[in-house]
């Protein structure tokens, strides 16, 4: 039997999802305050966790290919459509900064109790329906500036894969050091105590209000 198994069944989906959801929640990505802390520079978990995960999987795939466990071109590699992907990335970045989640983390938020994640999710369904409604006039933009099929950084730069991975490891390490300094300077990162205690700020407001009344 060859690897990958190309199993698209129910059990395969459930297994991947449970591992994914568990890791997202353990990272603190069920909390929109922790997630958006990335963009106020108070919490670098998004950068650190994502970059680490990309590198673990990228190095793993590279090692498995070198050792002959999986063949070249045996996993799915997306093809670039420059404007649509850059534009979509911009919209998701804006939606994340405003709404507090991205699609995967909204499910992690919902699974760990966040009611606002359900509203974000409903917004995504609405946004998807709007996209379908305007898809035909958008088709030109959707297909513009297509890159070569399944193009990778190795194809783009002509550099060997090990060198690209090494550069990314250095960038990640730099991000860990710099991010750690920046987040501590801003009183971060957010802890589970900070974000898993319901309505902490409301309790403080009530207390302040009470003290003001007593005074």
């Amino acid at each position: 039997m060859s690897i990958p198994f190309y199993d698209s069944g129910l059990a395969s989906g459930l297994l991947s999802g449970v591992l994914f959801g568990f890791a997202l929640e353990a990272a603190g990505f069920g909390s929109p305050r922790k997630l958006t802390g990335q963009f106020t520079l108070k919490d670098f978990a998004v950068f650190k966790v994502m970059f680490t995960a990309v590198l673990v999987a990228a190095i793993g795939l590279y090692a498995l290919r070198l050792s002959g466990v999986i063949a070249d071109n045996s996993v799915y590699i997306p093809t670039l459509f420059f404007w649509a992907m850059a534009g979509g990335g911009v919209l998701i970045g804006a939606g994340f900064a405003l709404g507090g989640y991205c699609p995967g983390t909204s499910l992690a938020g919902l699974g760990s109790g966040r009611i606002d994640a359900l509203v974000f999710f409903a917004g995504m369904v609405a946004g998807t329906i709007v996209f379908a409604a305007v898809f035909e006039p958008l088709t030109g933009f959707y297909l513009a500036a297509k890159g070569p099929d399944a193009q990778r950084l190795t194809d783009l730069t002509g550099l060997p894969e090990w060198l690209i991975l090494a550069v990314l490891v250095v960038v990640a390490a730099g991000g860990f050091v710099l991010g750690g300094k920046l987040e501590r300077a801003r009183g971060g990162p957010f802890t589970a105590e900070d974000v898993c205690t319901p309505q902490a700020e409301d309790t403080e407001k009530v207390q302040r209000h009470g003290q003001a009344l007593e005074a």
């Binding site: 649509a84 992907m85 534009g87 979509g88 990335g89 911009v90 919209l91 998701i92 804006a94 939606g95 994340f96 900064a97 405003l98 709404g99 507090g100 989640y101 991205c102 699609p103 909204s106 606002d116 994640a117 509203v119 974000f120 999710f121 409903a122 917004g123 995504m124 369904v125 609405a126 946004g127 998807t128 709007v130 996209f131 379908a132 898809f135 958008l138 959707y142």
Partner: peptide
């Protein structure tokens, strides 16, 4: 949350 979700839903289909 709803506006952010809508931008995200639209953006994910575009990308």
């Amino acid at each position: 949350a709803f506006i952010g979700g809508a931008l995200t839903g639209f953006g994910a289909r575009l990308a």
